[in-house]
């Protein structure tokens, strides 16, 4: 429906970027670029967001939070990686505490290059994301990249046994399991 694309709400998460892109995203919300004229509000709440705007190359400590936030956003949703480091890791590629880009963990729909991305480019990227978002529906559930393999195995097993399949629940359980097994956040000080 055409009305739907006029109201995308964004959630912004910084997984270890240099603040440059975050500042530019905020500048986009300012009067000069004014994202609100496209109906876009910055809702700092994943449960009410549609577009997940991620910046930064994903450091090791932000991984679990990134996955959690992604899981909390209800479908249909799109992910926009803003800035060079969110796309590929950029200047931080292959550093020891960095995971080289958002798409190692969650499926990314739009990559916005630039270091830092210009507000104009961010606007263009978000418009592109809205085009992709338009096609998606409530039922189009995407699987985080890290658990793709396990998900397919579990799904085929369940289908084999003739169980009823709730894809969302399976993904949720698998992500929780993955976070628990691999990414347990240390509590410091």
């Amino acid at each position: 429906m055409s009305a739907k694309i006029k109201s995308p709400w964004i959630l912004h998460y910084n997984c270890g970027s240099c603040n440059g892109c975050d500042v530019e995203i905020l500048a986009c919300l300012g009067p000069k670029y004014d994202l609100e004229r496209f109906g876009i509000i910055n809702k700092g709440n994943p449960k009410q967001a549609d577009i997940f705007v991620v910046t930064g190359p994903v450091t090791k400590r932000t991984r679990a939070r990134l996955l959690r936030l992604y899981m909390q956003i209800p479908e249909p949703k799109v992910v926009v990686a803003v800035g060079t480091c969110a796309c590929t890791g950029g200047p931080f590629r292959n550093m020891y505490n960095v995971e080289n880009g958002v798409d190692r963990f969650i499926p990314v729909d739009v990559y916005i290059p630039g270091c830092t991305a210009r507000p104009e480019a961010i606007l263009k990227g978000i418009k592109k994301a809205i085009e992709i978002w338009k096609i998606k529906t409530k039922e189009s559930i995407e699987v985080p990249v890290v658990i793709q393999k396990e998900f397919e195995e579990t799904l085929s097993k369940m289908v084999l046994h003739g169980q009823t399949v709730d894809r969302r629940k399976i993904i949720h359980d698998l992500v929780n399991k993955y976070i628990k097994n691999n990414l347990e956040v240390t509590k410091c000080d």
């Binding site: 270890g16 930064g56 090791k60 400590r61 931080f92 550093m95 505490n97």
Partner: peptide
Amino acid sequence: VDVGYVHRGI
């Protein structure tokens, strides 16, 4: 307080 989220190893 946990300040180590952005540690990248520059």
